[in-house]
Amino acid sequence: MKPRHDIRNNLRRYRLLADGMTQQDLADRVGVTRQTILSIEKGKYSPTIGLALRLAREFEVPVEDLFELDEENN
């Protein structure tokens, strides 16, 4: 389910900065499965707006800090 348009994310970086939070911990906090977090971090899946906002709120950062367009491929 690779996204057609390229979006980069810094989810893994923010997750590890949060005292080494595990994928399962993050998944539990935002109400999804670990598979979803894994797929987002690997760039295989772009979350819905709602999930992106929940993730941003979890790390207390703007959503643009977590997700950005890949300028090289756009």
Partner: peptide, 8 residues
């Protein structure tokens, strides 16, 4: 099912 599982 979460959104990723639903999409799959």
């Amino acid at each position: 099912k979460d959104e990723w599982q639903q999409r799959a």
